[in-house]
Design a binder for these strands. Sequence first.
DNA 1: GGCGCTCGAATTGCATGCAGTTTGAGCCAC
DNA 2: GTGGCTCAAACTGCATGCAATTCGAGCGCC
Lengths: 252, 252
Amino acid sequence: MAGRADSGKTAESSDKVSVICRALRRAIIEQALEPGAKLPEDSLGERFGVSRTIARHALGQLAAEGLVELRRNRIAVVATPSWQEARDAFDIRIELERLVVRQLAGKLTKAQIAELTAHVDAEDRARDGSDAVSIRLATEFHILLAHMTNSPILVRYVSEVAYRCCLTLSLYSRPHSSECAINEHRAIIAALAKGDVDKVMGLMHSHLDSVATRALVAPSPQRGRDLLDILAPYADEASGEKMVKLPKAARR
Amino acid sequence: MAGRADSGKTAESSDKVSVICRALRRAIIEQALEPGAKLPEDSLGERFGVSRTIARHALGQLAAEGLVELRRNRIAVVATPSWQEARDAFDIRIELERLVVRQLAGKLTKAQIAELTAHVDAEDRARDGSDAVSIRLATEFHILLAHMTNSPILVRYVSEVAYRCCLTLSLYSRPHSSECAINEHRAIIAALAKGDVDKVMGLMHSHLDSVATRALVAPSPQRGRDLLDILAPYADEASGEKMVKLPKAARR
DNA sequence: GGCGCTCGAATTGCATGCAGTTTGAGCCAC
DNA sequence: GTGGCTCAAACTGCATGCAATTCGAGCGCC
């Protein structure tokens, strides 16, 4: 067994806030909610049958995870990470997941290996379905790995950063490319089972790196969704006190 | 300049919630609030001149950062990480900070190097003061480094995990040992300035590793604060539905 | 004296209400 | 038409109120 005692749950349990968080998180990573989508407190509250207070609290949590952007007196929106932030997220993710597989190599039980294999099989079966589901399953594979370290902190960070990466994929990725990724998952499982630490760390590194470079196509100027997003940072500058009035264009 | 554009602020700005978060965070890492200290919503609200709603929201944010433990219907307390969690936090921190210095090596401006040096000087001057302040300054040195990457995500993760480590130091550390750490900080600055990537990554690794192993003395059984804490996990098990009544000792 | 029980005080979970800000649709002048 | 202005609706920021739960001091029993 690759274990220590569990006890998990950082702040996630069964209260209404957590339920809403989970629902929104999933909606976001499945792209049911695209980056930039508005998330008014009332609507959320109504949709989930709770008061604004609760919806608001949930948005706060998701903002802390970087999935939602919260600006004072403004409606909350699904986060729209910049290209650079996306690249940063992947860099961090690579380090964290190398740590995961380093801890896991050669320490997995047969049951755990079976669980991983089953998950990848599920990914395989979902290949015909929507891209969104494929992406979600691929992400969940990595989170499943993190869980097996039994380190709640590691689980939290890997989950967060993986969700963020997932979000950026929906922004900057083209058609999609999960076919090969599935085989890479299988290779990682094999190397983990074999206990080859260096090999599995290398595999994980190149796996994530290739996903990143394949998806985050280029530092080429024009890849933002639309002018609105492109102009957003300038608007932000303006809200930072000084600067006259003059934005007469750039409404909507 | 080692930069890209900033824009930062994940969810931290100037609303009352953030103010309370910052205050509590600082109080926690300076050990004004020890692990296990109670944080009732009313008291916080009263103390900061806000309503319970706001205090509650702030506690939610801090819980997301792992500095506060939130259990349903129970009073919030400053987090009391287990020894294993502390070790995990340090492992993650090592990887993240290696990434920081890797990005920074040879790319710092003279002004930035001066800023870092000034900070370490401040650490030096604070050596006679309380341990709490020394620890805080040492932690802030690392966060300052992270800021210089201009990667908001990296800043956030390094900050969080550094605060967590800070928290565990107050739990498991003995007298204190920052004297040598200060010199290690200077060495890191020098290596960064010189642009020696491998050297600085090695320095950071051994720096953090030595802090961790010096502080987190041993996996020896008895280091929890008191019986209450030791019994806490068992109580948790019990609250997980089954298990009869029987805990008759272990009140307070 | 120690142990368990009971009940009031303390505290949380959540909804609602009010004030201030932002949004954007319509209107007017050009 | 085009650009700017106005104002009501939409929305957020925050406090307060009420029900449900937990805490803990005191009381009775062994």
